[in-house]
Simulated assay, not measured.
Amino acid sequence: MSRPSVTVLDYGSGNLRSAQRALEHVGAQVTVTADRSAAAECDGLVVPGVGAFAACMEGFEQVGGPQIVGRRLAGGRPVLGICVGMQIMFARGVEFGVEADGCGEWPGAVTRLDAPVLPHMGWNTVQAPDGSVLFDGIGADERFYFVHSYAAQNWELGEDSSSPIAAAKLTWATHGSRFLAAVENGALSATQFHPEKSGDVGLALLANWCGGLS
Protein backbone atom coordinates (compact mmCIF):
# COMPACT_ATOMS: atom_id res chain seq x y z
CA MET A 1 0.00 0.00 0.00
CA SER A 2 1.35 3.42 -0.93
CA ARG A 3 1.94 5.97 1.79
CA PRO A 4 -0.48 8.93 1.72
CA SER A 5 1.08 12.29 0.99
CA VAL A 6 0.43 14.87 3.72
CA THR A 7 1.39 18.53 3.76
CA VAL A 8 1.75 20.33 7.08
CA LEU A 9 1.09 23.94 6.14
CA ASP A 10 3.83 26.28 7.37
CA TYR A 11 2.31 29.73 7.89
CA GLY A 12 4.40 30.78 10.87
CA SER A 13 2.33 29.11 13.58
CA GLY A 14 2.16 25.61 14.95
CA ASN A 15 4.09 22.61 16.16
CA LEU A 16 5.29 21.78 12.69
CA ARG A 17 8.00 19.24 13.40
CA SER A 18 6.12 17.38 16.12
CA ALA A 19 3.15 17.09 13.77
CA GLN A 20 5.46 15.91 11.00
CA ARG A 21 7.05 13.24 13.20
CA ALA A 22 3.69 11.96 14.45
CA LEU A 23 2.25 11.71 10.96
CA GLU A 24 5.37 9.97 9.67
CA HIS A 25 5.12 7.55 12.58
CA VAL A 26 1.67 6.43 11.40
CA GLY A 27 2.86 5.95 7.81
CA ALA A 28 2.33 9.24 6.00
CA GLN A 29 4.82 10.81 3.63
CA VAL A 30 5.02 14.33 5.05
CA THR A 31 6.14 17.68 3.67
CA VAL A 32 6.29 20.85 5.78
CA THR A 33 5.90 23.82 3.46
CA ALA A 34 4.04 27.02 2.60
CA ASP A 35 4.02 26.06 -1.08
CA ARG A 36 0.49 26.43 -2.45
CA SER A 37 0.84 23.73 -5.08
CA ALA A 38 2.01 21.16 -2.53
CA ALA A 39 -0.81 22.13 -0.20
CA ALA A 40 -3.36 21.83 -3.00
CA GLU A 41 -2.14 18.56 -4.48
CA CYS A 42 -1.37 16.39 -1.44
CA ASP A 43 -3.70 13.65 -0.24
CA GLY A 44 -4.21 15.37 3.11
CA LEU A 45 -3.54 18.90 4.38
CA VAL A 46 -2.83 19.60 8.05
CA VAL A 47 -3.33 23.12 9.40
CA PRO A 48 -1.62 23.46 12.81
CA GLY A 49 -1.80 26.56 14.98
CA VAL A 50 -0.72 27.95 18.34
CA GLY A 51 -1.10 31.38 19.92
CA ALA A 52 -3.67 34.09 19.29
CA PHE A 53 -6.54 33.66 16.84
CA ALA A 54 -5.97 36.98 15.03
CA ALA A 55 -2.22 36.46 14.63
CA CYS A 56 -2.70 32.94 13.29
CA MET A 57 -5.35 34.11 10.87
CA GLU A 58 -3.05 36.87 9.61
CA GLY A 59 -0.27 34.39 8.87
CA PHE A 60 -2.75 31.95 7.35
CA GLU A 61 -4.02 34.63 4.95
CA GLN A 62 -0.49 35.57 3.94
CA VAL A 63 0.12 32.10 2.50
CA GLY A 64 -3.32 31.93 0.86
CA GLY A 65 -4.61 29.46 3.44
CA PRO A 66 -8.33 30.27 3.18
CA GLN A 67 -8.24 29.84 -0.60
CA ILE A 68 -6.24 26.61 -0.36
CA VAL A 69 -8.66 25.13 2.18
CA GLY A 70 -11.70 26.33 0.24
CA ARG A 71 -10.51 24.74 -2.99
CA ARG A 72 -9.61 21.49 -1.30
CA LEU A 73 -12.98 21.21 0.41
CA ALA A 74 -14.82 22.07 -2.81
CA GLY A 75 -13.13 19.01 -4.32
CA GLY A 76 -13.75 16.80 -1.27
CA ARG A 77 -10.04 16.66 -0.39
CA PRO A 78 -9.26 16.13 3.31
CA VAL A 79 -8.11 18.89 5.66
CA LEU A 80 -7.26 18.50 9.36
CA GLY A 81 -7.03 21.55 11.64
CA ILE A 82 -5.22 21.30 14.99
CA CYS A 83 -5.71 23.63 18.00
CA VAL A 84 -5.85 27.21 16.64
CA GLY A 85 -5.86 25.55 13.22
CA MET A 86 -9.31 24.31 14.24
CA GLN A 87 -10.38 27.65 15.66
CA ILE A 88 -9.67 29.65 12.49
CA MET A 89 -12.06 27.42 10.54
CA PHE A 90 -14.90 29.18 12.36
CA ALA A 91 -16.36 32.50 11.26
CA ARG A 92 -14.75 34.63 13.95
CA GLY A 93 -12.68 34.71 17.10
CA VAL A 94 -13.10 37.05 20.07
CA GLU A 95 -10.03 37.67 22.26
CA PHE A 96 -9.71 40.45 24.84
CA GLY A 97 -12.87 42.03 23.43
CA VAL A 98 -11.45 42.22 19.91
CA GLU A 99 -13.21 40.30 17.14
CA ALA A 100 -11.26 38.89 14.18
CA ASP A 101 -12.59 37.15 11.10
CA GLY A 102 -11.81 33.48 10.55
CA CYS A 103 -12.14 31.35 7.44
CA GLY A 104 -15.87 30.93 7.84
CA GLU A 105 -15.97 27.27 6.86
CA TRP A 106 -18.12 26.81 9.97
CA PRO A 107 -20.45 29.38 11.53
CA GLY A 108 -19.94 30.68 15.02
CA ALA A 109 -17.34 32.24 17.26
CA VAL A 110 -14.34 31.07 19.25
CA THR A 111 -14.56 32.65 22.71
CA ARG A 112 -12.86 32.49 26.12
CA LEU A 113 -13.67 29.46 28.25
CA ASP A 114 -15.59 30.10 31.45
CA ALA A 115 -13.30 28.18 33.80
CA PRO A 116 -11.66 28.84 37.17
CA VAL A 117 -8.21 28.02 35.80
CA LEU A 118 -6.90 29.06 32.40
CA PRO A 119 -5.30 28.02 30.21
CA HIS A 120 -6.84 24.58 30.05
CA MET A 121 -3.51 22.75 30.04
CA GLY A 122 -3.15 19.01 30.36
CA TRP A 123 -5.00 15.78 29.73
CA ASN A 124 -8.77 15.48 29.39
CA THR A 125 -11.34 12.99 28.20
CA VAL A 126 -13.70 13.70 25.33
CA GLN A 127 -17.20 12.55 24.37
CA ALA A 128 -17.10 11.34 20.78
CA PRO A 129 -20.29 10.56 18.81
CA ASP A 130 -21.27 7.20 17.38
CA GLY A 131 -19.85 6.66 13.92
CA SER A 132 -16.82 8.90 14.42
CA VAL A 133 -13.97 8.12 12.06
CA LEU A 134 -11.32 10.01 14.04
CA PHE A 135 -12.14 8.20 17.29
CA ASP A 136 -12.79 4.75 15.81
CA GLY A 137 -11.35 2.13 18.16
CA ILE A 138 -10.43 4.72 20.82
CA GLY A 139 -11.94 4.13 24.23
CA ALA A 140 -14.15 6.68 25.97
CA ASP A 141 -11.76 6.88 28.94
CA GLU A 142 -8.72 7.83 26.85
CA ARG A 143 -7.26 11.29 27.40
CA PHE A 144 -5.92 13.87 24.97
CA TYR A 145 -3.55 16.78 25.56
CA PHE A 146 -5.01 20.30 25.52
CA VAL A 147 -3.37 23.74 25.78
CA HIS A 148 -5.86 26.59 25.22
CA SER A 149 -7.98 29.29 26.82
CA TYR A 150 -10.41 29.76 23.93
CA ALA A 151 -12.68 27.37 22.04
CA ALA A 152 -15.86 27.07 20.03
CA GLN A 153 -18.54 26.45 22.63
CA ASN A 154 -21.59 26.21 20.37
CA TRP A 155 -22.49 24.63 17.06
CA GLU A 156 -24.68 27.41 15.72
CA LEU A 157 -26.78 25.43 13.25
CA GLY A 158 -27.69 22.85 15.87
CA GLU A 159 -27.29 19.11 15.57
CA ASP A 160 -30.68 18.17 14.16
CA SER A 161 -30.89 20.24 10.99
CA SER A 162 -30.73 18.65 7.54
CA SER A 163 -27.85 20.96 6.60
CA PRO A 164 -24.58 19.12 5.80
CA ILE A 165 -22.79 21.45 8.22
CA ALA A 166 -25.30 20.75 10.96
CA ALA A 167 -24.96 17.01 10.33
CA ALA A 168 -21.29 17.10 11.31
CA LYS A 169 -20.05 14.69 13.96
CA LEU A 170 -19.25 16.71 17.07
CA THR A 171 -16.96 15.67 19.92
CA TRP A 172 -17.23 17.59 23.19
CA ALA A 173 -15.06 18.10 26.25
CA THR A 174 -15.52 20.08 29.45
CA HIS A 175 -13.23 22.47 31.30
CA GLY A 176 -15.36 24.79 33.34
CA SER A 177 -17.75 24.97 30.37
CA ARG A 178 -18.48 22.55 27.56
CA PHE A 179 -16.59 23.13 24.31
CA LEU A 180 -15.99 21.44 20.98
CA ALA A 181 -12.99 19.12 21.21
CA ALA A 182 -13.28 17.92 17.60
CA VAL A 183 -15.45 18.27 14.52
CA GLU A 184 -15.79 15.90 11.55
CA ASN A 185 -17.64 17.56 8.68
CA GLY A 186 -17.13 15.81 5.37
CA ALA A 187 -13.60 16.49 4.15
CA LEU A 188 -12.93 18.98 6.95
CA SER A 189 -11.94 17.62 10.36
CA ALA A 190 -10.34 19.38 13.30
CA THR A 191 -9.26 18.86 16.90
CA GLN A 192 -8.91 21.43 19.67
CA PHE A 193 -6.40 19.15 21.42
CA HIS A 194 -2.96 18.25 20.08
CA PRO A 195 -2.97 14.67 18.76
CA GLU A 196 0.76 14.95 18.06
CA LYS A 197 1.32 15.50 21.81
CA SER A 198 -1.21 12.93 23.00
CA GLY A 199 0.96 9.81 22.97
CA ASP A 200 -0.33 6.54 21.58
CA VAL A 201 -3.97 7.63 21.60
CA GLY A 202 -3.11 10.70 19.52
CA LEU A 203 -1.20 8.53 17.07
CA ALA A 204 -4.24 6.26 16.80
CA LEU A 205 -6.40 9.26 15.91
CA LEU A 206 -3.91 10.45 13.26
CA ALA A 207 -3.75 6.92 11.86
CA ASN A 208 -7.55 6.94 11.56
CA TRP A 209 -7.41 10.24 9.67
CA CYS A 210 -4.62 9.05 7.40
CA GLY A 211 -6.59 5.89 6.72
CA GLY A 212 -9.21 7.98 4.94
CA LEU A 213 -6.73 9.59 2.55
CA SER A 214 -6.51 8.41 -1.02
Rank of each mutant, 00 (worst) to 15 (best):
M121R: 05
G139K: 01
L118F: 00
G131Y: 10
E159D: 11
A115L: 06
V126R: 02
P164F: 09
C42T: 15
D130M: 08
M86S: 05
P119E: 08
Y150I: 05
V117Y: 01
Y150Q: 01
P78A: 07
V126F: 05
W106C: 03
S163V: 01
C56N: 09
D141C: 03
I68F: 04
G139Q: 06
G108D: 09
N154S: 14
R71D: 13
F96A: 12
G108W: 09
G85N: 08
V110Y: 08
L73A: 14
V50W: 11
D141N: 11
G44F: 06
D141H: 14
D136T: 03
P48G: 09
V84S: 10
G93H: 02
A115F: 09
M121L: 13
R112H: 12
G65M: 08
G65C: 09
A168G: 08
S132N: 09
D101H: 01
D136W: 04
E95Q: 14
V133H: 05
E41W: 01
E142A: 13
I68T: 13
A109M: 04
C83I: 10
V84Q: 08
D114K: 15
R77M: 12
A167S: 11
H148W: 01
I82F: 07
A168L: 02
F96M: 12
C56P: 11
R72F: 12
V110D: 11
A54S: 14
A100Y: 02
N124D: 09
Y145S: 01
I82W: 03
A74R: 14
M57N: 10
F60Y: 15
A55Q: 14
F96C: 10
M86H: 03
P78C: 05
G158K: 10
G81M: 04
Q153C: 15
W123E: 08
I138D: 07
G59Q: 04
G49R: 08
A74N: 10
M89N: 06
A55P: 02
I82A: 04
V126E: 03
Q67R: 13
P107G: 06
G104C: 10
L73N: 11
A55C: 03
A52C: 00
F53R: 03
G97W: 09
T125A: 04
L134H: 03
G81V: 06
S161G: 15
A128W: 00
C56S: 11
Q67N: 12
A109S: 15
E61F: 02
E142L: 03
M89A: 13
F135Y: 13
G81P: 06
V63D: 12
V63M: 10
E99M: 12
G158L: 06
E105G: 01
Q87T: 04
A54G: 13
P48E: 06
I138C: 07
V117N: 07
E95L: 15
A166Y: 02
G70E: 13
Q62V: 07
S161Q: 10
G76M: 05
W106A: 00
V133K: 03
L45F: 06
P129E: 09
D136H: 05
A152L: 09
